[in-house]
Design a protein around this nucleic acid. Structure first.
Lengths: 164, 164, 164, 164
DNA sequence: TTTT
DNA sequence: TTTT
């Protein structure tokens, strides 16, 4: 029989917040790689009119320029949009000799969202940011916005459930 | 032959900014409906190392609660994420009697993004926003952030092309 | 203010069937372009337990190799998976001088699905297909399957509503 | 500060083939659950003009009716389209007491594609299928097609790389 | 190991 | 009719 190959699609779309600063490292061959840890929230109903946020923590691996720019421009708390694919890493457990595998997400494009906190540059001082410190993503910049979250910034969630 | 129905998918995903305030109206039957006009930018290369932004303007129709909340909480300039589907409206042109059609996007879910400008509530005064005036989307709120963009806020685009 | 560019996304995903053979043409500059007409079905409930199929007809424009291969390998009835983006064509109406616009879908990748009818090569004769006539998509082949649908093949749709 | 919740998205789209028959089981509470093992192929270039297929194996968990219908209607080799989300299962390793986690895909909708092999009903006999034995997915049916792949149907993959 |  |  001729090969009847199916159309194939392996796509992951994530919109969420970084749970920590990206960690940049290099492979032995010198390729940049970084892991983005993203928290994605989902409203879940208990069926009795109560909604809670269920959070999924997803690690996304990015390579090359994307890795280097992620480390440069993304920081904990930042909102990001990631388009990527699933990858199943497989290896043999050295101790047991058993086959092991782990599902991962490889990020192909990363864009970042405006800083919800309207806050300054991550780790930023009080002065003008240097050009190289400008947060940016996907060719998209995101500036400092001067304000401090200040004393009003305690977490406060009441009354925000809009039945969109 | 039995019907061999294919899997079907009709999905539109948009992330962009509103080009104007949503306009809420009602059908004769009383159903709320609103049109969101969204500008989506795409970086386009001319092949010679120059990148420009190409903007696509997309109108998205939303219904019911989504329409009402869009009108309440979304304003011109706002970033939104829309998940929807394509719809082909067809009608007969009264004058010519010809069949006409128009491709549209129906928005099924709308979420909004933090205000990039770090600005206050849309149309907002200086005090605490009333609960009903809180901008929110998808069950997600977006608060005033107190800051003013200030004198630095002139549009400035140089140096922002990060090769992500 | 620095430019606070939003993340942007303009994505269309379609899975459906071609309503006619693709029509290949060339621009004055010699670029291949084809229009794919795709029917996408959606199950719609009337709220009273009855489900009907609502069909959306979407025209997708494809360029270059994708256009040429679409014309070579895709035929009416074929299942296709398209990933693309929305595009708003705008022009001035010559008669009225008014600005007009039309929302279109540009297909960036096209893959095709196995022929649900289990039928032979499109336009195919009885013999072995020549290599160049092999239907394929996205680097994916789809062979002739030689069989006849047989006497059971009258259209028959009852009882197929699986509450998946 | 009010909660400035980001838009959130956690979406997985897969189009591939089942590597084995779905396994249906029930939770202690009686909820049906099944695991679909899906192979998704991706064309990968080595940069020197050679393309190979890289296969990613993804396990997808489906619940309730979707689980039961998957077991009824889906079989090894079948093409499926899955729309779902990522989920991170976490638990404590009993032996080591360490926190462990595993990324999974939860399938929210499953549709199936026509059988590329043009073959009959899975496990099917020669007669008319009973209504309950009709393969179907997403409210979509897929009939027996009676034919035999015939003498042309030897596996043959050369020359199929269409530069779509 | 967790973000908002 | 356009947003950033």
């Amino acid at each position: 029989m001729l090969r009847t190959v199916m159309a194939n699609l392996n796509k992951v779309l994530l919109l969420g917040n970084l749970t920590r600063d990206p960690e940049l490292r290099y492979t032995p061959k010198g390729t940049a790689v970084a892991d983005l840890s993203i928290a994605v929230n989902r409203r879940v109903s208990d069926g009795a009119g109560n909604w809670t946020d269920e959070t999924t923590f997803v690690d996304v691996t990015v390579w090359g320029n994307t890795a280097e720019n992620s480390q440069k421009y993304l920081t904990k708390g930042r909102g990001v949009f990631v388009e990527g694919r699933l990858q199943l890493d497989t290896w043999e457990d050295k101790q047991s000799g058993q086959k092991r595998s782990k599902l991962k997400v490889v990020g192909e494009t990363v864009q970042f969202l405006p800083d919800a906190r309207g806050g300054g540059v991550p780790n930023g001082g009080g002065g003008s940011p240097s050009p190289s410190a400008r947060p940016a993503g996907g060719g998209y910049a995101n500036p400092p916005q001067g304000g401090s979250a200040g004393p009003d910034s305690d977490y406060d969630d009441e009354g925000d459930d809009i039945p969109f």
